[in-house]
């Protein structure tokens, strides 16, 4: 099968995701409202409670809103990844997923294309958020708007593939609510999205390690450093490793001979 066939297939999957995104405008706005509520209300209330000292990549004291902005960007991607996995469970139950899975193009390629399509949509949401966030004086250096892009792609892939793996493991649409309680909220709160890790270490050492090894922390910190045109090697390597693990698990989950689909299908 030639490269051009793969490319056409990839374009088609991305275009379909973009069209669904355009047709579901409320999805776009709800994805923006969530982080803006955190920025406008939560951050306003907590800025006097939570002081943030000078920590890399920041070179001076920063308002709390500036600190949580990368966490909220990662939150957009986290929810987008989960939304994509929810739509995959829905598509699987309703049948439309079948049309993709019976294509002659290898399944791993179809799944990676679908993941990248979801990442593309989440990046549009992130840039829309950054434009609105400038009203709160969250204005990174101009180069940051470009250097953040690779971090967004890799963190979007990591969170998307985690969602895809979960979607392969979830048997029914109704079970998806459990994912909210057991995946999204613990991941978000046990991370450096809302408070620096040293603050957590002061309170509880074991919780510090939970937060430190939380994949979401790696997404938040990669985004934080790249937004200021810097690279943190430790977080960059970590996020790549987590992405490869989740990607492998999600492809395995949809493999007709070994994955979760086969377990559900019987023998």
């Amino acid at each position: 099968m030639s490269l051009i066939i793969y490319l056409r297939c990839f374009n088609g999957i991305v275009l379909r995701e973009a069209l669904r995104f355009v047709h579901q405008k409320e999805r776009f706005f709800s994805a923006l409202v969530r982080p803006l509520v955190w920025l406008g209300i939560f951050a306003a209330g907590f800025r006097s409670v939570l002081g943030v000292s000078i920590i890399p990549p920041y070179e001076t004291y920063i308002p709390y809103e500036v600190y949580i902005a990368p966490g909220l960007i990662a939150m957009i991607q986290l929810f987008n990844g989960m939304q994509s996995s929810l739509s995959m469970v829905y598509d699987r139950e309703m049948g439309s997923m079948k049309t993709m899975l019976v294509s002659p193009i290898p399944r791993w390629f179809l799944l990676v294309s679908k993941l990248l399509a979801g990442v593309f949509v989440s990046i549009l949401q992130v840039y829309a958020f950054l434009i609105i966030a400038s009203l709160w004086d969250i204005i990174p250096p101009v180069s940051g708007y470009i250097t953040i892009l690779p971090a967004l792609i890799i963190s979007g892939l990591m969170l998307g593939s985690l969602g895809m793996f979960l979607s392969s493991a979830i048997k029914q649409l109704e079970n998806f609510a459990g994912v909210m309680n057991f995946v999204i909220f613990p991941m978000f709160f046990a991370s450096s999205a809302l408070y620096p890790l040293w603050k957590i270490e002061e309170t509880s050492e074991w919780l510090y390690y939970v937060c430190f090894y939380n994949p979401f922390t790696y997404a938040v910190e990669s985004i934080r450093f790249s937004l200021y045109s810097q690279i943190n090697i430790e977080y960059s390597i970590g996020i790549i490793i987590f992405t490869l693990i989740f990607l492998f698990l999600s492809i395995l989950g949809y493999d007709p001979s070994r994955g979760n689909l086969q377990k559900k299908a019987g023998k």
């Binding site: 066939i5 056409r8 297939c9 374009n11 088609g12 999957i13 275009l15 069209l19 993709m100 193009i105």
Partner: peptide
């Protein structure tokens, strides 16, 4: 759009 999506899944 549905038919075009299907075509792309077959590399047309």
């Amino acid at each position: 759009e549905n038919l075009n999506y299907h075509s792309s899944l077959h590399g047309i």
